[in-house]
Design a binder for these strands. Sequence first.
DNA 1: GGTAGACCTGGACGC
DNA 2: GCGTCCAGGTCTACC
Length: 316
Amino acid sequence: MGSRLTIAPPEDYVLARDVCSYGYFVLAPNYWDVANQRLQRALALKTGGASCVIDQPGGKSGALRARFDRTLTRDEQREARAQITRMLRLDEDRASVRAFHRVDPRWKRSGRARLFRSPTLFEDVIKTVTSCNVAWPSTVNMNKRLCQTLGAKCENAHAFPTAAKMARTRPGTLRGRCRVGYRDVRMVELARLFVKGEIDEAWLGDPATDDEQVFRFLVTLPGIGPYAASNIMQLLGRYSRVALDTESVRHGRTVLGMTGTDAQIMKKVAAHFEPFGEHKFRSYWFELWRFYEQKAGASHTWEREETASAFTASNF
DNA sequence: GGTAGACCTGGACGC
DNA sequence: GCGTCCAGGTCTACC
């Protein structure tokens, strides 16, 4: 039998709601088990991969339980706990949630505030690159192939590739086997920057670091433009920018009733969310998410394999 | 500072 | 089944 961890979440934490809150929860190696309302995935620990299943047996606000496919050492347990804390945003405490709900009370009743992310910043950055300039099914496919090709093998699954592994991979392998296209060189360069310590997560996450400084740094990275940088910022817990893309234009037209050219609508969407200040990404995102749920049902019922075909622009 | 075109993949469409 | 077109964000060259 493998190790078990019990993790006390913030008192308002609801696993199904807070995992199924951002598209990455359906990207490999994440797997949301709809029937059992639990999250399965492999974690890439320093010592190798470890599969885990995370659930909340007591229901809303209850303790989280993480069960592993093997016995973890003390250090591995500490690392796994840190990765799960990051992924589930357990460090987004009640005060932060209240601050958001004060600015945008529309989400107070549902409690929406936390956005699912990855166990590591590296995975978040690479996932963001795989979401640029492609339709959603390609993003799903790239992540699946990256895990199968480069991820550490666990009992029944593959972890997400580590920066060290990707840094050693030939761009041609990424292109040929993972179908990442022209992103190949950029992804390897990003991985090398992580390995060399040139992407300083402590600095990026430090509240003393200004959002503008973070944005200016991120757009210097290979494959990262204004959209990707804004998205990475929300993944860092910095919600002061709306990540504007074609979805923003669609949202502006179909939900907010805006008219004009794409460029004009982008500006209007940015202006529309300006009053939400430091929380504007969350206000924007949960509007989008509500629209998706109206079309596809509650997000905790979405099957991973079906979202690849369901979430295309032509369906929305 | 603004803009045009290339980059690659996969879905949609026409034949 | 095959060929063509198109969407998607970033990057470079050019004005």
